[in-house]
Nucleic acid binder design. Structure first.
Lengths: 248, 248
DNA sequence: GTTCACCGTGAACGTCGTTCACTATGCTGG
DNA sequence: CCAGCATAGTGAACGACGTTCACGGTGAAC
């Protein structure tokens, strides 16, 4: 099962076979994504993918341990793509004020979610029993591609907060339970902002998630008949900017 | 298929057979829920349910049109249960100040979500292609059990806002797109609050959804390693109360 | 007491994930 | 250059899935 080749044990140049293997892996993931877009995670079927890439189903087991592992790899690659999209949005206009870059990045997140609803659902919906678990359990932090996604927001937020340090509760004023829970993460990110700002960061993430997920999942359709929450999202982002002390 | 009995066409007392039929339906839904809890929507299988209620798979087609329709009915019954839970929380202490009753209800929502994650995921996660669609498309508003769930919050919010009318933008100040989109819903709920308050209501729902869903789906685990966001939720609800002008 | 609607079964079809024995291919070490 | 071998891919098979259909049995209705 994907045994390590003695020739290129770690980081030396990949052999011909390894390149072909990796190429087939991405081809498989592309086919999987096509099926995901067509009909949700349910349609991502081993046999379907195999047909798409011109193989029979058992051949896929040379590349992935099974359907769940394949879905996990698909999640990873999607997290990566999303992180790239966000980085691109953030750095699109490096001279612009940070507030604007933050808003542009937030809008890019929403846009990606709406243009890729099945993918967004896979990454940010209810976890599928055997899939996402494996990812977040991965001991190697670099292997958790979701981390890269979170990193975008963290960098942006930290830069924003340090340039515009809206008052946050001191560590002593924080709920002791919350302070204790967040200490590990706080250290993990190198204490780039005070722990009170981490709470603010999480509350921003929650608000952004809520705004994007409710729209992408259709949980606003009861009120917004056409399902387009653009105007509402604008409102919410203004509110979020105000919470960050970014009054214009 | 479930033809109307000439004896009890509409609302007269149900015949013996009809009662048995209805009883079997709920028994089936209970079995389906047991499987849902065991292993998510994926495990809710026609054959599995049939075995659970002591029948063979084809027999279930006397009660439901198929797996998707069965999942839809399960959603409806879960929405109903959740609405009951919320109503109970709201009316637990009718003499308490509205702010407290609002917070108690919000906490009840979170608690139900955390104690019934698979059910919550089915109702509030990414929509399953063939399932939730049918529900929200139902022309009979009384048949959409999700409406009953939304009604709890709407009643609570309206009562709260009228007792404590925090300033909201006038209709003229609202984004024209948003105003036009919300007009239909505004009429539908009988204009019990001004349309600007509807925007506030939606933003509250989004914030509550974000707080509960991120925790229930594990989308806070990157920072809260134990996954318990109680303290953070407290914070967020305080913030939400402040947005409603409920400073204590 | 006959008729008939309804409940439930068993067999069957096509699809699913997965395993296994097997073959072909192409790289590798002597 | 050739023997050896890891790897890629196939076809058959197993059990489980959703769904359909023809069939028998049971209880209510006239």
């Amino acid at each position: 099962m994907t045994s390590v080749n003695p020739v290129s044990a770690e980081s030396s140049q990949p052999t011909r076979r390894e390149r072909a293997h990796a190429a087939t892996r991405v081809e498989i993931l592309q086919a999987a994504r096509r099926l995901l877009i067509e009909g949700g995670a349910e349609r991502v079927t081993v046999r379907g993918i195999a047909a798409e890439v011109g193989m029979t189903a058992p051949a896929l087991y040379r590349y992935f341990g099974g359907r769940e592992e394949l879905l996990g790899a698909l999640c990873s690659s999607l997290y990566d793509e999303l992180a790239d999209v966000l980085y691109e949005a953030r750095d699109r206009d490096p001279g612009a004020p940070l507030k604007q870059r933050f808003l542009v990045t937030s809008f890019a997140f929403r846009q990606w979610a709406l243009e890729h609803r099945p993918e967004f659902g896979l990454l940010f919906g209810a976890p599928i029993p055997g899939v996402l678990v494996d990812i977040h359990i991965d001991p190697d932090p670099a292997a958790d591609r979701g981390m890269r996604f979170g990193q975008v927001w963290l960098e942006l937020f930290a830069e924003l907060w340090r340039q515009h340090p809206v008052p946050v509760p001191h560590a002593d004023e924080l709920d002791p339970r919350l302070r204790e829970q967040l200490t590990e993460y706080h250290e993990q990110i190198g204490r780039i902002v005070p722990i009170g700002a981490v709470v603010l960061y999480l509350s921003c993430w929650i608000q952004l998630y809520g705004a994007v997920a409710t729209e992408a999942f259709g949980h606003l359709n009861f009120a917004l008949h056409d399902g387009d929450a653009t105007a509402l999202f604008d409102d919410l982002m203004r509110e979020l900017a105000a919470k960050l002390g970014l009054t214009h």
